[in-house]
C-alpha cells in the first residue's frame, strides 16, 4: 500500500493547477427524520442530513449498518420498504452501482445513451455527448465494444460515463469501486475526483473503505445502527496526500468510530497502543 500511495502523491502535484469551476446552482440534498424499516427491524432511525450543492459526502458503515438503504432511499429505489420522513433531492440524479449494470445486449455507446436526454434538451446531439462522456472517462475508441469485452475497470468507467452524460446535480454511488482490484481502484479514485472537480455535482458515496472516504470526500459520515454516529468535515485541499498526518488523524478517528483498531496503519502517526 505504501509504495502505491507514494506514487499517487508524486503525480497529484500536477493536478493542483486545475481551478475548480464556479459552483452551479443546484438544490441541496435534505433528509429530515428519515426512517426505514424492514419488518420489525428499523434500518434507518430518524436520519437528519443536509448537504450543500457540490459537496462530496462519503458514507461509511459496517455491512448491515443501513448505508445502502440510505442511498437507495435517496435514489428512490425503495418502493417496498416502510418509512417516514422528508426527503428532498435535486431534479437530475445519477446512480452508480457496485456492478456496472451495462446491458450486455447494447454496445457501450448505446449503454451510455440509455435514457439520456434527447436533442431537445439543449440542442446537442445525444450521441456526441455520449462520445464526449466516454472520452472523458478514458474510453474513447471503445464505443462499439460489447460490455462483455471490457475489463471490470472499463465497465465501471462506462457506468460513470452513463451517469455523467445526464449532467447530474447529485451523483449517488453505492460502493462503486468495491469489486475492482487495488490498482484499478486508485485510478478510479483519481478519475472520480477529476470528474467531480470539473462538473461539481453533489456526491453521496457509500463505501466501507475508510481510505477511499478520506481521500475523496469533503465530509465523512459514519452510520451505525441506523443513526449518524460521526459527521466529520475533511477540510483538506485536493489532491490529497496519503501521508498527510491530518488525513491519518481523520482515518484513525473514523476507524475508531467503526470499532477497528488501527493496527499498523500506513499513516505517519506511528503504532498506537491502548
Amino acid at each position: 500500500m505504501a509504495p502505491i500511495a507514494q506514487q499517487l502523491n508524486a503525480q497529484q502535484v500536477t493536478a493542483q493547477q486545475s481551478t475548480p469551476s464556479p459552483v452551479p446552482p443546484a438544490s441541496a440534498v435534505s433528509l429530515t427524520g428519515l426512517t426505514r424499516s424492514f419488518g420489525a427491524r428499523t434500518v434507518l432511525d430518524g436520519i437528519d442530513l443536509e448537504f450543500p450543492p457540490g459537496q462530496f459526502v462519503a458514507l461509511l458503515g459496517h455491512s448491515g449498518s443501513g448505508k445502502s438503504t440510505l442511498l437507495r432511499a435517496v435514489a428512490g429505489l425503495d418502493h417496498d420498504t416502510v418509512g417516514t420522513g422528508e426527503l428532498a433531492t435535486p431534479e437530475r440524479v445519477s446512480v452508480v452501482f457496485q456492478d456496472s449494470r451495462l446491458l450486455p445486449w447494447r454496445r457501450v455507446l448505446d449503454n451510455v445513451l440509455l435514457g439520456a436526454p434527447g436533442r431537445e434538451a439543449d440542442g446537442r446531439d445525444p450521441a456526441e455527448r455520449a462520445r464526449a462522456a466516454l472520452a472523458e472517462v478514458g474510453l474513447a475508441g471503445r464505443e462499439n465494444a460489447w460490455p462483455g469485452e471490457l475489463s471490470g475497470g472499463e465497465q465501471q468507467r462506462a457506468a460513470l460515463a452513463r451517469a455523467l452524460v445526464r449532467e447530474p446535480e447529485l451523483l449517488l454511488a453505492d460502493e462503486p469501486f468495491g469489486a475492482l482490484d487495488a490498482l484499478t481502484r486508485i485510478r478510479m479514485h483519481t478519475l472520480l475526483r477529476e470528474l467531480w472537480q470539473r462538473h461539481h455535482p453533489s456526491v453521496l458515496l457509500v463505501t466501507h473503505d475508510v481510505d477511499e472516504a478520506v481521500a475523496l470526500a469533503d465530509r465523512v459520515l459514519v452510520l451505525d445502527h441506523g443513526r449518524l454516529a460521526v459527521d466529520l468535515g475533511v477540510d483538506l485541499p485536493h489532491p490529497r496526500v496519503y501521508r498527510d498526518p491530518q488525513l491519518g488523524e481523520h482515518r484513525e478517528r473514523l476507524l475508531a468510530a467503526l470499532g477497528v483498531r488501527p493496527d499498523g496503519g500506513p499513516a505517519g502517526a506511528g503504532p498506537q497502543e491502548d
Binding site: Q7, A10, Q11, L183, T184, I186, T190
Partner: peptide, 14 residues
Amino acid sequence: MADHVSSTAVVTAP
C-alpha cells in the same frame, strides 16, 4: 492522468 498512477507503479516495481 489516471494512467500515470499505474504506469509508474508498473514500471518501477519490477
